[in-house]
Design a protein around this nucleic acid. Structure first.
Lengths: 207, 207, 207, 207
DNA sequence: CATGAATGAGAGTTCATTCAT
DNA sequence: GATGAATGAACTCTCATTCAT
């Protein structure tokens, strides 16, 4: 059946394919955000789309696969920003504060993605978005941390535990930030101070 | 309703009831650990039991309800220990190091509970056990933190953000500890040092 | 285990048995009226009782059996009245009018029984209570009709079709009576006139 | 949603859909007739079909919904016939006898539909088919009766009670007709005579 | 005989996935 | 490649009934 399609037709098709794929991912993001991953069905996703149910399977094998794609997509948005921030940093303070500020900023402006998966999830009363992308981003962070250790900017401590601590604080504090609608700036200051000087260095509370 | 069953009969029944309830909870713990909460079905749980399917519903209305019970049960095990640790503390260092040590100790010895919910959960590649009990435990922690702030042992900073930071570090670092089979003592030292003095105070890495 | 029970104890037991049986029947009447026969479960019935579920089976084998008992009980209330009415009749007019009046009177005063079984019954938008008792009552009616035919008071027509007509009118008109809250007297007059003289004899409408 | 399926494809699909829907309705008619409405399960219906269980739910939401569809279908068959009969009538006798004859004829030839719902229904030992259609049909009848009253062909009596009487006789007598396999003609004569002249006018019994 | 928890068949329903069109 | 109805395994949950106490 593959007959002669002129270039234009072929181009059109590629376009449709790409846009269908994107339509599914976008629908998935919305539906996951509303219903949570567990409660979402493939049907829910395609229903949030102009496409037919069978079409889903031309693009993804399962709900899980579209979830991965969603994650990857998010990755592409955050990681470069985080990376750029750290590269620009001229000392450890800039390194750590730039990272937190960028991350909290992202969370605030993309709260759909972050807030996602909270509804009807007894297992996730507090949320962790742990998409591969973000993970990959933090992997980069670890690599950068190792460099910092080598350069003597950071003591020769366990980089994975340090990583874990940063990640833990980042997510948990981001959650608190959203819950209480705190300013990105203040939240980043708090996290930065903690890492730079411990509890004794924490900023005075507001209000 | 209850007319004249002798005490013995009543006793026997209560016993069976309690043991059935416990059997379901135990099965649930195992199955949730293996399949993850989302993927687990009520059937999976009763199949892991020698009870009949209908019996499940004599004890719990839904999967969610067993999950809650499971959480409550865990709560009863950890919270008192954490509380006792903090009450015994004579200064902030003891407060913070006692808490981390106790928590990591619990996680290590009850790793089934902690490791639970990791398989088949694309949405939870890293785990957060956020059972009501643990939450309640951390609520107690917050209360204790507020006291510490009042007493001037801790600067007058936002207690919720501090809470969030401790929780974030506790879970994320515990995860790392399990993954790499680190010693409870070392892990607790790391977390404690971070909170007391920030990154600069972190202990030297081992090996 | 059948030991010596004095007469008093035996009497007490009989009493309890009878009262339990009655309690179940009464509960069934109420529950059937509320939920309709089809939707009612044995559980619903015992729940409307002070008894335990197992006890139900000491008295009845099934929902159907208790339904039958309910019917029989009703029978005992209506049939004698209808019979007495017909025996007292000195001509066919008294026969027919007495029957309708008595039946409509019963329906009006025991509307629970009659109105029963209407809720949630797609198959019974209009109701027919066709309990054995009432049937038995109409069987007596047929016998009496045959006597009337023998005596030449009623033409030698098919007694079963006549029976059916009387029953059909009785139930359907009773339903209308309840729906519009008509007077027993007027309703009985209508039905009587129809049977005595056909449509041309029907009374003028009210209001 | 529907992009570019050619007309042929669409046609084929519509066809299958229609025929599946009909298959379910037909199966439902048979099964309801055999088991009665209450005892019938959705599974029973699809089992009487060569469709898969899930397919049922593509067409109907519940047992009740098929039942409604079944009723509507029957409606389309009887009502026009009854209406036509009454319109053709030139006097009240033709009106009433035409109606009964048509109705009894329908019942006789479609006894599956009528006999339906008799088995296993303690609550319906005598049947009333009171499908919306038939109801609607009798609503038309009432309207026609009101016209007859206005025209002076029928005395100014309560039309709803007259309606109820006709309906009651129609169903109850039809039941008797089926039970004893009476002729439509004779049965219609009986009912007609009753309404035209009362008991005194009833035809002599056969046999 | 009363009790009420255990039982398990089976009802209703959903949903990922296939496949003819 | 898009479509969307068909499929049927599997799930949740109910309920009549049994039976140890």
């Amino acid at each position: 059946m593959s007959v002669d399609l002129d270039a234009k037709t072929r181009g059109k098709r590629e376009e449709t394919k790409a846009s269908n794929r994107q339509a599914i991912i976008d629908a998935a993001r919305r539906v996951f955000a509303e219903l949570g991953y567990g409660a979402t069905t493939v049907r829910d996703i395609i229903r949030a789309t102009d496409l037919a149910s069978g079409t889903f399977y031309n693009y993804f094998k399962s709900k899980e696969e579209v979830f991965q794609a969603l994650q990857d997509e998010t990755a592409l948005r955050v990681r470069p920003r985080l990376r750029a921030e750290r590269i620009r940093a001229r000392n450890f303070e800039e390194f750590i504060s730039g990272s937190f500020r960028t991350f909290f900023d992202f969370v605030k402006n993309d709260r759909t993605t972050f807030a996602t998966m909270r509804s009807n999830h007894p297992e996730m009363s507090r949320v962790r978005i742990d998409t591969p992308e973000v993970i990959a981003g933090f992997d980069e962070l670890r690599a950068d941390l190792e460099v910092a250790i080598e350069n003597g900017v950071v003591p020769d401590t366990d980089p994975n535990l340090l990583m874990a601590s940063i990640v833990g604080v980042a997510f948990e504090v981001a959650h608190e930030m959203l819950t209480r609608d705190l300013a990105v700036e203040d939240t980043a200051k708090f996290a930065t101070a903690l890492f730079l000087g411990g509890v004794q260095a924490l900023p005075k509370r507001k209000a």
